[in-house]
Nucleic acid binder design. Structure first.
Lengths: 354, 354
DNA sequence: CTGAAAGCGCTAACAC
DNA sequence: GTGTTAGCGCTTTCAG
């Protein structure tokens, strides 16, 4: 059936065969005069090794400049030390802040984080997931609010733990989520403006197909209706500063409102800029409220009144929830509800008396 | 010497032994009625396969929901499909912009990007490199300006291609770099202010141990001296908005300058904020210039005059240089010189007449 | 155009 | 406390 063949050439010189390792665990073992098992165990501290032996191994590692091949390790153990983190827009400061906290936590547990960017495209979220599946990541933080149908199932089928930033449906030992109470935040914002005396309040939303944009938009509508306000104007933009600018310019083109609530800070920046370009002073002529409390919001001029998501916690909580599932410390995923807090700063004031 | 032992249990049921793959290349091969080799070649298009055979394989892949194990692939080929990107501060918008471009390019070439953050700590740069070496990344973009001695050598010894954001010493087929002409940028900034009539120009620098901070600081000193200006005040901060704020407050505490050049935009934001807190109007009472042209600089109020690094190109150029080396399209690394351009916006104006 | 099988570097079960 | 070795899933050489 098949021909017999001499074993292929093995490493004989110090050079690499077929582009292989410069120095591997075998070399270290030889140098230290121990078996490769011992080296492995010293490296991973997976069983007791006599101190002198361990020291010899470590010396050999040092001398040879050995570095463990993680691909091999991952293959042998069947799981990778890389976690996936998928975000909507790495250029929106909200996400770097989250990313940093997530990474810092991961680092403490010797995990790497592969950050992927979808640009708010649900299709790309699934693409990213597929790529991460190939890497056999043990866990995934999907911190985008947009997703294709079937995404959650795709992940679960691979037995990968995941934390979502939206409601992924029924929980399981593989599924957790972090839910921000967008509605409450928007309500606070509207209440604040109403209490200041505003009646013409407009809203600049995110792209209407995004879940998080929908929630905020819907909450705005409900709150305004509850207040019995008819004068309610809504434009949809795209969560970017540019979008905020153009959204605002549309609002100002006829019957300008006295206050604008923006679905995120980035759009609020754009809106502030637009207002000034039209000669409106903030907050004397028009009040602006943002959402997210990205670190820049306090450095804008005037400092932006915004609905704060506890962003320092976001990345940490996501990691923690993921880690618990990966290490099976929970029989079931978690639902983490995150409240918001209105930070009143100088971009809001009572409307001008006419 | 060693005992004989029956071969360990093999996969017999559809279940996993020792936590292994749910579906692997073998399963696909069996299902398609071909050999493993054929599946591999269909997957990677590394040799001609009869169309019908290929189709059968693809059907099997589809039906089984097979996803290639990249750890195994990487182990077998001896190189990973992950590139490392090390940045100083993912929360400084300069870096997300760079990151995004780099990642977009990488994606086009089926590469993943592992982004790591050093927080401006040179020690952490080396740590990151070591972790990436373990992953056997084929290439590394070290876009930090701070580094330990020996870093370049550490990387080169592992035969890893790298692009640096500083001058790494002699080039080699493994080493490229992107050098921003900081000095020229600072000179433009100072010239601009001088031409407006400013004589008391101060400087807020980055952390003094960083190379990029040094360059900018030095250029400022030289340019001021060349102009024969004695009234030159310099404070060192840390490239953050907070740092800019406190640096500025120190400058304003005695003999306030009429203009401030900041070593990056983030510090300029902080400085602007501080000026306003002290009752100074920008630009009437004091002019501010930034450096980097992060996307927010045009949304600040007033829009920030800044020295622009062509940031859209930065990530792309870094990737391109790396890719060329990885594919040995160049016999030698590249030195990419990047010029800057002063964007005059509304944060600068002639000094007030006394 | 296709298949068999060696081997990538490591882990972990088993033997001593 | 330490060593031997099967096997992780894949690529790729060699043989048809």
């Amino acid at each position: 059936m098949t021909g017999f063949r001499e074993p292929r050439t093995k490493r004989e010189t110090g050079f690499r065969v077929r582009g292989r390792e410069l120095v591997n665990i075998k070399n270290v073992a030889d140098r230290a005069g121990v078996s490769i098992a011992t080296v492995s165990h010293v490296l991973n501290q997976t069983r007791r090794v006599r101190p002198e032996t361990a020291a010899r191994v470590r010396t050999a590692i040092e001398e040879l400049g050995y570095s463990q091949n993680l691909a091999a390790r991952n293959l042998a153990t069947g799981r990778s030390n890389i976690l996936g983190l998928i975000v909507s827009d790495i250029q929106n400061p909200h996400f770097p802040e989250l990313t940093r906290n997530f990474q810092d936590q991961a680092l403490l547990h010797n995990m790497e984080v592969l950050v992927m960017n979808t640009g708010y495209d649900p299709q790309r979220t699934s693409d990213c997931v597929r790529r991460l599946i190939g890497l056999r990541v043990p866990g995934l933080a999907i911190m985008t609010t947009e997703y294709d149908t079937g995404l959650v199932e795709l992940v679960a089928r691979q037995n990968i733990r995941a934390v979502y930033y939206f409601n992924p449906g029924p929980l399981s030992p593989l599924i957790s989520c972090i839910l921000v109470n967008y509605g409450e935040g928007i309500r606070e914002a509207v209440n604040h403006l109403e209490e200041l005396g505003h009646r013409q309040i407009a809203f600049i939303g995110g792209a209407p197909h995004l879940q998080s944009a929908m929630y905020r938009r819907q909450a705005f509508i409900e709150q305004m209706q509850a207040r019995g306000e008819g004068a309610m104007r809504i434009v949809d933009a795209d969560f970017s500063a540019e979008g905020g600018y153009y959204g605002c310019s549309r609002l100002l083109s006829s019957a300008p409102p006295t206050a604008i609530v923006c679905a995120n800070d980035l759009m609020a920046f754009g809106a502030m800029h637009c207002c000034r370009d039209k000669g409106l002073r903030i907050p004397q002529d028009i009040s602006i409220v943002g959402f997210d409390n990205i670190s820049f919001s306090q450095y804008s001029h005037p400092p932006l009144t915004t609905v704060a998501i506890p962003r320092d916690k976001l990345g940490q909580l996501a990691f923690k929830a993921l880690w618990e599932m990966i290490n099976r410390q929970t029989s079931e995923g978690r639902v983490i509800q995150l409240g918001t807090r209105l930070l009143v700063r100088e971009s809001t004031a009572p409307p001008r008396k006419n």
